[in-house]
């Protein structure tokens, strides 16, 4: 494990940015946000960014390919380019876990080459949490906020930033920074983990359990009468899906530029009424079905297809952003039976 004094952070970032584009959370009017580092940029103190980190690998819109149309003829233009190496500093444990959840979709055969390209070139410097919020419930899904995964796991221990490389990519980057950093035994990190774990255990949602959900539970929950009450006030605005680090639904749309056609992929939301609309009919007629789809996917369908792994990381974004204060915690409490009373 290596460390660097907090007052030398700028030189650390600058050394990284010499070779790779570096992104880190900074404060903006709209809250904390990942931005490209520039000399003097200040790392945000916020616990997490308003938007999740999924944009780095699965951007809100991206150009998939272009077409040239000439009379009856079409030319397909492959616009994909090898992505440059980049580093994301300050990704929290929940968001790091979300990458694994997205990987299982996009890297499953047939592999999504757009996603894979970015994923291969991104180095994740995660940052352990020290002061989790009351909306955090990553622990429900077995995520330890005091000890995230990532290529390089970082801990802010009072006066120093401690860095532990976990992967080949991480080791390569950290060894490049050797002249700036010094070896540390990691005692301060262990001490800090202990304190954070105590804080995590005292969070209001610390006892929230997902045990009654999971693989193969479709029949148990699909027909539950509680969906009616839970979905009643849902506006179908899709905010919860857009802020969610694990929501991955997308649409494909063409745009005629006048000189040719650009095909885009953009985020979509299962909360929208036209998401599944067909000429032959609409399998999800009311907001109840759409609302149920979102939560059944996270708590039952995804785990069914992915060895029990849930598609929620307890980041709490949907808790703070939903205009009607509905969220996955309320769903789990209402449907989850005794353990969640």
């Amino acid at each position: 494990m290596r460390k660097i004094s907090i007052d030398k952070l700028n030189s650390l970032f600058s050394a990284i940015a010499e070779n790779e584009t570096l992104y880190l959370p900074v404060d903006t009017k709209a809250g904390a946000k990942f931005e490209k580092w520039h000399d003097g940029a200040v790392l945000s103190d916020a616990l997490n960014t308003v938007r999740s980190a999924k944009d780095f690998f699965f951007p809100q819109t991206e150009n998939l390919m272009d077409f040239k149309v000439d009379g009856k003829n079409i030319e397909i233009i492959d616009t994909r380019e090898e992505c440059e190496d980049f580093v994301i500093f300050g990704v929290r444990a929940c968001d790091v876990k979300s990458f694994e959840i997205l990987d299982r979709v996009f890297l499953a055969e047939p592999v999504d080459s757009y996603y894979k390209n970015r994923r291969e070139h991104g180095v994740i410097m995660s940052l352990a949490c020290t002061k989790p919020h009351e909306t955090c419930f990553c622990g429900t899904f077995g995520i330890d906020a005091s000890s995230p995964e990532g290529d390089i796991v970082c801990h802010m221990t009072g006066d120093a930033l401690c860095m532990d490389a976990k992967t080949e990519k991480g080791k390569a980057l950290l060894s490049r920074l050797d002249s700036l950093t010094e070896e540390t035994d990691g005692k301060a990190v262990e001490e800090q983990k202990k304190v954070t774990k105590e804080r995590l255990a005292k969070l209001p949602l610390a006892s929230l359990s997902a045990d009654s959900f999971g693989a193969g539970k479709t029949e148990k929950f699909f027909g539950a009468p509680e969906w009616k009450e839970l979905s009643q006030a849902c506006l179908g605005c899709g905010t919860c899906t857009f802020v969610c680090p694990t929501c991955q639904c997308y649409d494909i749309k063409d745009f005629n530029t006048g000189h040719g056609v650009k095909r885009f992929r953009c985020w979509d939301s299962c909360m929208y009424s036209d998401f599944t609309k067909m000429s032959a009919g609409q399998p999800r007629l009311t907001q109840l079905e759409r609302f149920r789809q979102r939560f059944m996917h996270k708590l039952v369908y995804y785990p069914t297809n992915n060895g029990g792994l849930f598609s929620c990381v307890g980041c709490g974004r949907c808790l703070s952003k939903c205009p009607i204060q509905m969220n996955i915690v309320k769903v789990m409490k209402k449907l989850g039976g005794k353990e969640n009373d």
Binding site: Q248, Y250, I252, C270, A280, P283, H297, V300, Y301
Partner: peptide, 19 residues
């Protein structure tokens, strides 16, 4: 079955019935 589809490869999240 016929459901609305975009990707055709189990990734866009559009055509599921249950899991």
């Amino acid at each position: 079955l016929e459901l609305r589809m975009k990707c055709g490869i189990g990734k866009c999240g559009r055509c599921n019935v249950g899991a």
